[in-house]
Design a protein around this nucleic acid. Structure first.
Lengths: 338, 338
DNA sequence: AGTGAATATTAAAGGGCTTACATTTACGGC
DNA sequence: GCCGTAAATGTAAGCCCTTTAATATTCACT
């Protein structure tokens, strides 16, 4: 492995000068720099990131805290899309991404601990359970951080305007003529779930529509299965709703399947609307009418916020909220005449 | 930041002993170790991975080479699933995962270079374009490596039995009574694409079935759009095939949509079969009959192969091939009477 | 020539950890 | 009491790089 010492020996300069040549110090003569760079190329020199980090305290590494345990992980359609765009700008700026787990080598250690051990310069958080004590510990720390799908004054946050999204969704259903609109809520603990539920309630109130007794059902983990189960509950209601707004696309799709299995046609007999616009939503039949989040924008802006927080200190915490839009497809229609 | 020197000072032992205490050397007395560990805990000591790596030459980091550029990246449904399981066993064994890009900080540098700079202990490769010269460069190197969805004698490889899968697919279609079976092939450059096409051809021959002129169409990037276009070509054929075997689920789904847009019902008028069994395949209508790859197994075994290659030297190259299975759902049926 | 200011180069000190090797301590046996 | 061995601990060098402060060189100008 070639080091700056080897280059120094070969060119006759000191290691100091060699190092400076690579780091574009203004006090090495252009001719000298060229000589050194040329030698480095010939010798196949590559800098050692660990040695550099050891002295500079800067690792050029960003920790990625990704949903663990639920079995979704990297597969998670929404977070997966966001992180991909995040990665693009981070890499562009010279950073590498590293997954931070809480149990490494079978030892329970926690996110913060692993961040410290690896000396990451910052962290991007994409979790669904923000109650996790290990996450809280990280949150208390002073590591530059950006969190997705969550809001807190303790860190920069980036999320979609869930409340407004839910509002728009209900608006749309109302505009089709629906009045008995039920809601399949996201998991209790999730931030977007709460927001969307709030938006739903607010929208119903603003139209003076009554929320049917039992008209809000919780679906766990945003999973297809829980959407299915939730829909079964809704269909068993005294007065069956004519439209259902689900907090996630998978929940919605589960609802569609439950309706179908009960002999109801979507959207002829009952309308179903989702949230997220994950990839599969345009392929299912009927294609899902939903609320689209701009994942590319979320990812990109999250990266920008984090990087500038790394460069310029944490500064004022930013809570970025991005607008969403209703994507009309085939799963909603005016209610059937009664 | 607490270091072993701080602990040494506080406990009165030397840094050496402190280091040994952490590394479970047998020559520190149990009582001493306890004292040191206790002090470390009180002082909030955490080891510095970079310093450790610098001396030991072992980074406990695995580089992940993930499809770039096509826009799919982490979203890629198949690779995403595989890497998730890979990650699980790697983390379990104490490794962290780091994404390796070829252009960092706007500089074109290449995979190998970045692996060296970060001193990764090994690399897992999930690419679709294995012709990339930067990948070739990496392949020539001696970095422990496991490659997915590819075969070469130069590295350990893990893939599904694509040929057999294609064979089984055709078998199944034949068993339903189909004889005019067309194929939508994967991209020219992809390894699984070639394998599956070969399997298709072999299967057709073994049944003495003629491959219709123009009955093999290439779909680029395994994308929905190219599946759609390919299907349009097939439907325009003199004698329309009664069944189409597509090299990927997205291709297949595109084909289904093309058929539908041409006024054909799937599977009543034409059967469509896919490959991969990505998540959405069970949600579309008709649910896609396809060939399932065991992504969990692929990921897990890939990790095991890589880790043992790291521990015990590269050794004999292994080419692991895993069986696949036909998943019967709704998109295939016996051909219509003529 | 001599001065001072600017420019170019280097020595040396870390950064936090591991490890080969050296040294000290403990202890049973004579 | 002294020796030898095994067990426990310590010294010091080294991993590769950066950075501060000091030294050397150049050059313009009296």
């Amino acid at each position: 492995m070639t080091t700056i010492y080897d280059i120094a020996k070969r060119t006759g300069y000191s290691p100091t000068t060699v190092s400076k040549a690579f780091n574009n110090y203004s006090d090495v003569r252009e001719k000298t720099r060229q000589e050194i760079l040329e030698a480095a190329r010939e010798m196949g020199y590559l800098p050692n990131a660990h040695a550099r980090t050891l002295t500079t305290k800067k690792s050029w590494t960003i920790g990625v805290l990704f949903v663990e345990g639920t079995g979704a992980g990297i597969r998670h359609p929404f977070f997966g899309a966001v992180i991909e765009d995040f990665k693009q700008v981070a890499v562009e700026k010279g950073y590498a991404l590293m997954f931070i787990s809480k149990d490494v080598g079978g030892k329970q250690s926690g996110y913060l601990e692993n961040c410290r051990i690896h000396g990451v310069d910052g962290v991007v958080v994409l979790l669904s359970d923000y109650g996790d004590p290990y996450f809280q510990e990280l949150l208390e720390s002073n590591i530059p951080m950006v969190i997705l799908d969550y809001e807190t004054a303790q860190a920069h946050t980036v999320c979609s305007d869930n409340t407004a999204g839910a509002l728009q969704a209900v608006e749309y259903l109302v505009s089709l003529g629906h009045r008995r609109i039920a809601h399949i809520s996201g998991g209790k603990g999730t931030f977007p779930g709460k927001q969307r539920e709030l938006g739903y309630i607010a929208a119903m109130e603003s139209h003076s529509l009554e929320i049917p007794e039992g008209g809000i059902v919780e679906g766990a983990f945003y999973s297809l299965e829980s959407g299915y189960a939730a829909m079964q509950q809704l269909l068993a209601l005294q007065e069956r709703p004519t439209a259902v707004f689900a907090s996630g696309d998978l929940l919605a799709q589960g609802a569609v399947m439950a309706a179908r299995d009960s002999g109801l046609a979507v959207p002829a007999d009952i309308s179903v609307m989702g949230f997220d616009d994950i990839e599969l939503s345009k392929f299912v039949t009927p294609a899902l009418t939903t609320v689209r989040q701009d994942t590319a924008l979320l990812g990109r802006r999250a990266a920008e916020v984090l990087l500038s927080s790394i460069d310029e200190g944490r500064g004022e915490m930013q809570a970025l909220v991005f607008p969403v839009e209703v994507v009309v497809r085939e799963s909603c229609a005016p209610p059937a005449e009664e």
